[in-house]
């Protein structure tokens, strides 16, 4: 069954979109990430214009993270103070990202920017996560605790920068500067790539700031919710590329898939889980890494000039 997408201006099979978003939702529920990083490239692969794919996935990520935020909120595993700072930085980053996105689109290099960003981000983060997951697994084998405990009195230098603040929920006393910088970077990446950035924020908060994992996931979902809501609005305002029909289909598949993913997660071993996520991110990165290096089959591409529309 086909449905015509009013903004993307092409018909698409409802079952294909529901199947895809359901599968991505399952993965996102399983790993506690937004899943935008998988969904955007898949939509582009289905011939949906990249601008529409990025903007619409932002709406989908906003919707699916709502579910998570509500769950963590009920469990009180959400640091609002830390979340607010992350959001403030995230909004600034999102504005910069949307501006950058639109200027790259005008220059005709959007495709390359998206590809190269995916490559760098995914190979670096996937690689780091793989390394960490393997190390943790080896530790478990050797009978040691999987994670190093935070030791009193030892702080990395960036936490000692000026403007220090206390975050009681996260058991953190740290400078605002590195947190805000991280938030800006993630907001920027999110707006350009149509990803929530959870897969960057979660490991960053755990490794750089040593915040307890349970709090990290809830807080990161909160930050994603707010920045992706902002990104959806900004995309709708500046380039009118949010497709509401596609967004509904993605949300329906996504939220249902995420519930099943979340249930499956409870039956999986935590460490093998992290290894799987690392491999997943790494393989998406490698898939994009190959692309700009192979000679294109069709060197030409056609776009409709923006000015005349």
């Amino acid at each position: 069954m086909q449905i015509y997408l009013p903004i993307a201006e092409l018909p698409i099979s409802i079952l294909t979109v529901l199947g895809l978003s359901g599968a991505v939702g399952f993965v996102s529920g399983l790993f506690g990430v937004g899943g935008g990083f998988l969904l955007t490239p898949l939509l582009i692969f289905l011939d949906i214009p990249p601008a529409v794919a990025v903007a619409t996935v932002a709406a989908q990520v906003a919707g699916s993270s709502t579910t998570g935020v509500l769950t963590y909120w009920r469990r009180r595993a959400l640091d609002l103070k830390l979340g607010t700072i992350l959001v403030a930085g995230g909004i600034l980053g999102t504005v910069l990202g949307v501006l950058f996105f639109n200027s790259m689109r005008r220059l005709g290099q959007l495709e390359l920017v998206i590809t190269l960003s995916y490559v760098t981000l995914f190979t670096i983060i996937g690689g780091l996560m793989l390394y960490d997951a393997l190390r943790a697994m080896l530790r478990v084998r050797a009978g040691k605790p999987a994670r190093l405990k935070r030791q009193a009195g030892t702080h990395p230098w960036w936490m000692g920068l000026p403007l220090r603040m206390r975050f009681p929920d996260s058991q953190l006393y740290c400078s605002v500067i590195p947190i805000a910088t991280l938030a800006i970077v993630i907001g920027f990446i999110g707006a350009v790539l149509g990803v929530g950035g959870g897969f960057i924020l979660v490991p960053a908060l755990i490794y750089f700031f040593r915040i307890p994992t349970a709090i990290v996931v809830g807080t990161s979902l909160f930050q994603i919710l707010v920045t992706m809501t902002g990104a959806t609005l900004l995309h709708a305002l500046t380039n009118q590329s949010v497709d509401i029909v596609l967004a509904i289909l993605l949300l329906l598949g996504g939220v249902i898939g995420a519930q099943f993913g979340g249930r499956a997660a409870r039956n999986l071993n935590v460490e093998s889980f992290r290894l799987l996520l690392a491999l997943l991110i790494l393989s998406v990165g490698l898939r994009f890494a190959i692309e700009p290096f192979i000679p294109p089959g069709e060197p030409f591409s056609v776009v409709i000039s923006e000015g005349t529309r």
């Binding site: 709406a59 699916s64 709502t66 509500l70 609005l233 009118q240 949010v242 509401i244 967004a247 939220v255």
Partner: peptide, 18 residues
């Protein structure tokens, strides 16, 4: 309006799922 409606709909569906 379009952007707000899309966002509200996304949040509503997310809440509904939860």
């Amino acid at each position: 309006v379009y952007g707000l409606v899309t966002v509200l709909m996304a949040l509503l569906l997310g809440w509904l799922a939860s």
